[in-house]
Design a protein around this nucleic acid. Structure first.
Length: 794
DNA sequence: AGCACGCCGACT
DNA sequence: GTCGGCGTGCTC
């Protein structure tokens, strides 16, 4: 009590102005006064309810100031707006944090104290997030130049954004009362009360009652329960889900089962990582397929758990999480939980809380799980680090890999990136000494060598998209009872449906790209915006009935294979066939049990799944990847080849990898096949140095879209004009230019690319200009964003 | 992003 | 006469 009185009396020192991040796309926080003598001392990281415009919103406190401090900053901001910004943001994601800090946000127009509104309430009695995550938030704000509200929207579970209390919910169960039991025995129910009788019956069979969430599964409705409760025949009992078992494993022995023997390289990797368990250090576990990376993770994690700490494991896709989960569960008896986007808001909140309280020992999740708070952080593991799904492509765009590196440095824990085909960014950091590479070059399990063969389509007769040579090989492997994987990164039947007589071809009016023809239900679909329509039987222009599908997608490939090998059992795995939740798992089981002879699929298939009986893998069409204008195309192609090759020959059967292309002489193909990914990557890095392309230069991209073409151009022209005011900064501007896909879902898309060799100057330029850019009149007429370290395909 | 204010077309 | 279209402007 005393302390509260003291603070209230000493208002000058008392921090009564809070900066609040609110979910609006504005690059600033809003400031509010704390009511006098408010019971809760405001702290950064607490949620607050505030009046905002004519409504009220929930926001998060990012800074707390005294009135004096506030007046000082507003004076400062007014006089030195847009001047004197010190060295912003750190040099590279792997670099150590610079003073992450509580620096106050720069304001263009700070209101006077008298003009500040007063907050309505402080929701949390303590900060939602540990200090390390607050620091991470400040880093994100500076590095990505994103609006604070948007960052919080990705940092916090939706349930918390909506204001739900940050505590485990009370579990409730419906139980029958003695009166209810008696009523049931004495048959005191009305004749027509069928449902009530049913309910009492079920409840009397469940001594512990039925959980509220499970009423439906027991065919019981809430209305029935309520009317029974009115008669006192049933009661809803609440109990707090126990938090007492927090850290139940701490100090106790972690049981681990099924440990595998390590080969010398794996053992060395484990001990190398184990040596840095109590400090920040980044590792690249560069291991060829089947070299046993996962076993290394498991043994390192075991050590982490044994010291009472938690492990955060990030994987690229939800499809891979059940698989990873079961492998972990077989090994540890500690609490392991999942965190991914397919879960309900309540499930996510529960798991988030369990991670924060330390109750869960291992957290496995997709990219957004990189923000999960941990009570006792021990290690971050990010598997398949090259995978593009670690980049968030909606809303606030970040790279979970880069964030993981920064987070590990803040938490002062090790981070392990794993891959058989690491990104050039990561390899550059290895060369710079920021990341320590650990190589696993031996296979952990005995497997036969792979035979690679490039089939040059130029010199081949092609039958339904397949070369005669490949058809022969498929026949051969089928005869030898080998399974076959065919990759084609194009779903649907054919990429174009064309009128043979007049040349009409269907294209999406909203996106300006061809409709893909889907044969099964005879419809045309735009693979950009998803819109679809019935495929015309007659040409809409000339009424000819000669509508021909041109090109091959997975659907057509499956049809061809069925015609060529009618006796073989085929399965197709792509977005169209795996829409159902359990579909993917069913396919995987079918393939593993040997029910499937030939598996046809898109890139979905390249990730993670182990099919031990596969002996032949073929990439049906590498042309697209090799001809692409994107300078990163060879890197992606090399990663794809490496990943796909990993699917073949993992058991005791010889494996073959076939690549079909018209560009058979492409040097990258030969390098990757005959010298391996590492050698390819060295050459590619040398080339990027020479051409000053990323990762040897740093980039940002302004992207704008609008239904009006000239609005997007006007905005980006204005942006360029503002950027050009700082020509002392060494940042090159390219554009504005149309995006690769100029039109999507009825909106025109343009972009302005910034490139520089000085990351610092790039950050300075953005920090100096974004306020003005945001205030542009033309900005309000388009949707726009700025993306750091963009990766092509916009 | 919301949300209100504002100034012009077809409806009871 | 007004319901409502979405352009414009603002949010501590």
């Amino acid at each position: 009590m005393d302390s509260i009185l003291n603070l209230a009396a000493n208002t000058q020192e008392h921090r009564v102005v809070v900066g609040v991040a609110i979910a609006v796309p504005l690059r600033r926080v809003f400031h509010y006064l704390v009511p006098a003598d408010y019971a809760i001392e405001p702290q950064a990281g607490m949620r607050v309810k505030v009046p905002f415009g004519k409504s009220t919103k929930i926001g998060i406190i990012t800074e707390c100031l005294s009135v004096a401090q506030w007046e000082e900053t507003s004076k400062l901001a007014a006089s030195t707006h847009a001047a004197n910004i010190d060295n912003q943001a750190s040099s590279h994601s792997a670099a150590l944090l610079k003073q992450p800090g509580e620096q106050q946000s720069l304001l263009a127009n700070p209101p006077a104290v008298a003009a500040l509104k007063t907050l309505l309430s402080i929701i949390d009695s303590s900060p939602l997030l540990p200090d390390s995550l607050l620091q991470l938030y400040f880093w994100l704000e500076k590095y990505y130049h994103a609006p604070p509200g948007e960052i919080w929207q990705t940092l916090l579970p939706v349930a918390l954004q909506k204001g739900q209390p940050a505590e485990s919910p009370r579990e409730s169960r419906w139980c029958i009362t003695p009166q209810g039991e008696a009523a049931l025995q004495q048959n005191r129910l009305a004749k027509n009360a069928v449902k009530q009788r049913l309910a009492l019956d079920s409840l009397s069979q469940h001594a512990d009652g039925i959980a509220h969430e499970q009423l439906q599964q027991h065919q019981l409705s809430l209305a029935t329960m309520k009317s029974l409760a009115g008669k006192n025949w049933v009661i809803r009992r609440f109990q707090q889900v126990s938090d007492n078992n927090q850290n139940h494993h701490r100090g106790s022995v972690i049981h681990s089962h099924n440990q595998l023997d390590l080969n010398a390289q794996q053992a060395a990797a484990v001990s190398q990582i184990n040596q840095s368990l109590n400090q920040f250090k980044s590792f690249l576990l560069f291991g060829i397929t089947a070299s046993g990376k996962t076993e290394v993770y498991l043994q390192v994690i075991e050590k982490v758990l044994a010291s009472g700490k938690q492990a955060l494991v990030l994987v690229p896709e939800i499809g891979l999480t059940p698989q990873t989960l079961s492998r972990f569960q077989l090994r540890f008896n500690a609490e392991i939980l999942l965190l991914h986007s397919a879960m309900t808001d309540q499930q996510r909140l529960q798991n988030w809380l369990k991670a924060r309280s330390g109750q869960a020992s291992i957290i496995i999740g997709t990219r957004s799980a990189v923000f999960t708070p941990l009570k006792h952080p021990g290690i971050i593991i990010l598997d398949e680090e090259h995978d593009l799904s670690f980049r968030q492509q909606q809303g606030f765009r970040y790279s979970a890999r880069d964030v993981a590196l920064v987070r590990a440095s803040i938490e002062n824990i090790p981070v392990v990136l794993g891959s058989a085909s690491p990104s050039l960014e990561t390899l550059m950091n290895v060369h710079k000494g920021k990341i320590e590479a650990i190589h696993l070059t031996q296979k952990a399990k005995a497997t036969n060598e792979l035979n690679y063969r490039i089939i040059d389509l130029k010199k081949q007769a092609i039958q339904q998209g397949l070369s005669i040579e490949l058809i022969q090989l498929i026949k051969q492997h089928l005869n030898q009872q080998g399974q076959i994987l065919l990759f084609l990164n194009r779903r649907g039947y054919a990429p174009v449906l064309l009128c043979h007589d007049c040349g009409w071809s269907g294209s999406c009016s909203r996106c300006d790209i061809h409709f893909t023809y889907h044969h099964q239900n005879h419809f045309l679909q735009c693979h950009h915006c998803g819109s679809s329509r019935k495929a015309p039987a007659q040409c809409p222009d000339c009424y000819s009935e000669q509508m021909v599908p041109v090109g091959h997608g997975t659907e057509r490939l499956q049809e061809s294979i069925r015609q060529l090998f009618p006796q073989a059992k085929t399965a197709r795995i792509d977005r169209d066939t795996t829409r159902r939740k359990s579909a993917m798992q069913e396919f995987v089981t079918a393939v593993k049990s040997g029910e499937i002879d030939i598996l046809i699929g898109t890139q979905m298939l390249a990730k993670g799944h182990h099919f031990p009986d596969v002996t032949l893998v073929a990439l049906i069409d590498m042309d697209g990847a090799l001809y692409s204008a994107d300078f990163r195309a060879p890197e992606f192609a090399a990663q794809l080849i490496t990943q796909v090759s990993g699917r073949a020959g993992r058991a005791n059967k010889p494996g073959e990898v076939i690549i079909q292309t018209h560009l058979a002489e492409h040097p990258m193909l030969h390098q990757i096949i005959f010298e391996g990914y590492a050698s390819f990557a060295d050459a590619a890095l040398a080339e990027r140095i020479e051409t000053e392309l990323p990762p040897f230069s740093y980039s940002a991209m302004f992207q704008a879209e609008s239904p009006h073409l000239n609005a997007t151009q006007k905005f980006l022209d204005d942006v360029k004009e503002i950027l050009l005011r700082y020509q002392n900064l060494n940042v090159e501007l390219l554009g504005p230019a149309p995006a690769i896909y100029t039109k999507k879902a009825g909106k025109f898309r343009y972009q302005l690319y910034l490139q520089t060799t000085s990351r610092n100057q790039l950050h300075q330029l953005l920090a100096l200009t974004l306020n003005d850019i945001e205030a542009l009149k033309s900005a309000s007429k388009v949707r726009w964003r700025v993306e750091l370290d963009p990766m092509g395909d916009y």
